[in-house]
């Protein structure tokens, strides 16, 4: 069951990810990315990380992609006209990606650590949200506040950037 869910969602995620790179129309790309993120959230759930999965759907598939669609429609982007393919970039891209994947396969098959199957969770199971929250507020108080300041700075920065005239 878990295995079937993994293969189903991993295949869908990669297929929609390819859609983002290969489709011409920016709106189709954004929709493809939304589907890819939803499949990724399902993969998080198969890893018993329900909280992260829900956050993924809320923040990425919800807020971030709405922002992307909003900007695409605001700028009224047309389909990318098919210009001449940049040969250097294409060769470089294919080369870097294939080197990356072959290195990854080499590393993953090098040690028996990577071929262990899903270990069973031991002990009483508590709610995922509670445990993440306990870890967050017990050990990561300062980083949490720093992230709060970062969000504030980003908000102010966006307002400054989107004013009519930049001085």
């Amino acid at each position: 069951m878990l295995s079937a869910a993994f293969w189903f969602f991993a295949t869908l995620m990669i297929a929609f990810g390819l859609g983002v790179v290969l489709l011409r129309n920016p709106v189709s790309c954004a929709m493809s990315l939304v589907m890819s993120f939803i499949c990724l959230a399902a993969l998080f759930v198969t890893l018993d990380a329900c909280f992260i999965g829900i956050i993924q759907v809320l923040v990425y598939a919800g807020a971030v992609m709405v922002l992307f669609l909003f900007i695409i429609m605001l700028l009224d982007l047309r389909s990318e006209e098919s210009r001449r393919l940049n040969v250097g970039a294409t060769i470089g891209g294919v080369l870097v990606v294939s080197i990356f994947i072959s290195l990854l396969i080499k590393v993953v098959s090098s040690s028996p650590v990577f071929s262990q199957t899903l270990p069973a969770l031991i002990g009483p199971q508590q709610s995922d949200v509670k445990l993440v929250g306990m870890t967050l507020f017990r050990y990561f108080g300062l980083p949490f506040e720093v992230v709060g300041v970062l969000l504030l700075v980003a908000t102010v920065g966006v307002i400054v950037l989107s004013r009519k005239s930049l001085r």
Binding site: L2, S3, F6, W7, A10, M13, I14, G17, L18, V20, V21, S36, L40, L43, T46, L47, G93, V94, V96, V97, F100, I101, L104, I105, V108, S109, V113, F114, S115, Q116, T117, L118
Partner: peptide
């Protein structure tokens, strides 16, 4: 059952697609 390598490969392939994009 999916192994750790399966998840890492899925993640790596998604990363590589993004890099190619």
């Amino acid at each position: 059952m999916p192994t750790l390598a399966n998840y890492l490969l899925a993640s790596g392939i998604l990363f590589a697609i993004g890099l190619g994009g």
